[in-house]
């Protein structure tokens, strides 16, 4: 059954250049950042693999700018949209032909559909959803670390014999590669011999969904603000985060009393008692009356500049800092993850 490749003949670190509506998915920049470190440690080239409906020089210069030394660019009308069968066929053939040492995919809905199919076909190991990658200095093997048991345990996985070593990498974790304008890469054009009958799924429609606001008591996620916001305008930032997490905004009594926000938003003993999956308290010191209305939340996150604030005593995650800095940082990382 096994026709996998031996470790001795393989070389180079590959990154699958996943596209979203024709542009590079943010995780690709993260894979190139991480791939660069691995390639440098091994003394290998960093290669991007791009599958498109037609050759796209703009994407080539982006991948080169983010550090790809070589770009395998496969263009075929049947690759214009992702399909498991089409992409797996082209990538498998390329892997068997070029024998990469390491192949990295984003742990996205596409990456997690594609990578296992290819790993099974080339009979090598695959480690899912890695949050840390490094090279064992003695063996040169890739050490792939990932959470298991609902995050209760971390495991470091090796694929010591078979090649390539394949991982899917969790989006939003690795540092992005730095873009350098005008960097060039070797382009290897690939013309795959793909036939329509090889692709067994038919795409009828791709639907985009937008997020909408939800009510306080039904919300799975509540982002709440208090006097520490400094003024009513602070809620705009909270709304952004709430919208992004599919939740809604709440407030402390002090902020409502100050007239910064509508009373229907008040969380606490005299307001609404809430039990969302996630409660994010921003600039809320944590008066008992507020705590009474939200302490049943599954996960409590507190963001406050005062490290002595009582809210931190009930928080699962306390972030000592200014919400004006912390929330944009969270939003930026969420953006990287999703698109």
């Amino acid at each position: 059954m096994s026709v996998s490749q031996s470790a001795s003949s393989s070389q180079n670190v590959w990154v699958f250049a996943e596209l979203r509506d024709g542009v590079l998915a943010p995780v690709v920049m993260e894979l190139l950042g991480e791939g660069r470190k691995l390639a440098d440690t091994l003394g290998h080239k960093l290669c991007a693999v791009l599958l498109t409906g037609s050759s796209d020089s703009r994407l080539h210069s982006q991948l080169a700018g983010y550090g790809a030394d070589r770009i395998y660019s496969a263009a075929h009308p049947l690759l214009a949209h992702y399909t498991t069968d089409g992409f797996a066929a082209v990538l498998t053939e390329l892997i068997l032909q070029e024998s990469p040492e390491i192949v990295l995919f984003g742990a996205t809905h596409v990456g997690r559909d594609l990578a296992p199919r290819i790993a099974a076909r080339v009979n090598t190991g695959l480690t899912a959803d890695c949050t840390s990658l490094d090279i064992d200095p003695e063996t040169g093997n890739l050490r792939q670390t990932r959470p298991a048991f609902g995050g209760n345990l971390m495991a470091t996985i090796l694929c010591p014999v078979r090649r390539p070593q394949m991982s899917t990498v969790r989006p939003g974790v690795m540092d992005k590669a730095v873009f350098l304008e005008g960097r060039s890469a070797e382009i290897i054009p690939i013309c795959p011999a793909l036939k329509e009958e090889q692709i067994r799924t038919q795409l009828i429609q791709a639907v985009s969904e937008t997020l909408h606001q939800v009510s306080l008591s039904e919300a799975r996620v509540i982002v709440s603000g208090g006097l520490g916001l400094g003024g009513p305008e602070g809620y705009e930032l909270l709304k952004k985060l709430a919208g992004r997490l599919g939740g809604t905004i709440g407030a402390s009594r002090a902020a409502v009393d100050a007239g910064w926000i509508d009373p229907t938003r008040q969380v606490g003993q005299t307001g609404t008692t809430v039990k969302p999956d996630v409660y994010i308290a921003c600039g809320i010191s944590g008066a008992i009356q507020h705590l009474a209305g939200m302490k049943g939340s599954k996960i409590i996150i507190a963001i406050n500049t005062n490290r002595e604030a009582p809210i931190f005593e009930v928080a699962d995650y306390g972030l000592v800092g200014d919400y004006k800095e912390v929330i944009p940082a969270i939003l930026e990382r969420l953006e990287r993850t999703i698109s």
Partner: peptide, 20 residues
């Protein structure tokens, strides 16, 4: 093909953490 090299308990995932 894959082998577990080591397992460990993550520290940051415990409830009640404070970051500054």
């Amino acid at each position: 093909p894959t082998k577990v090299y080591r397992t460990f308990t993550p520290k940051t995932e415990r409830a009640g953490v404070l970051w500054e």
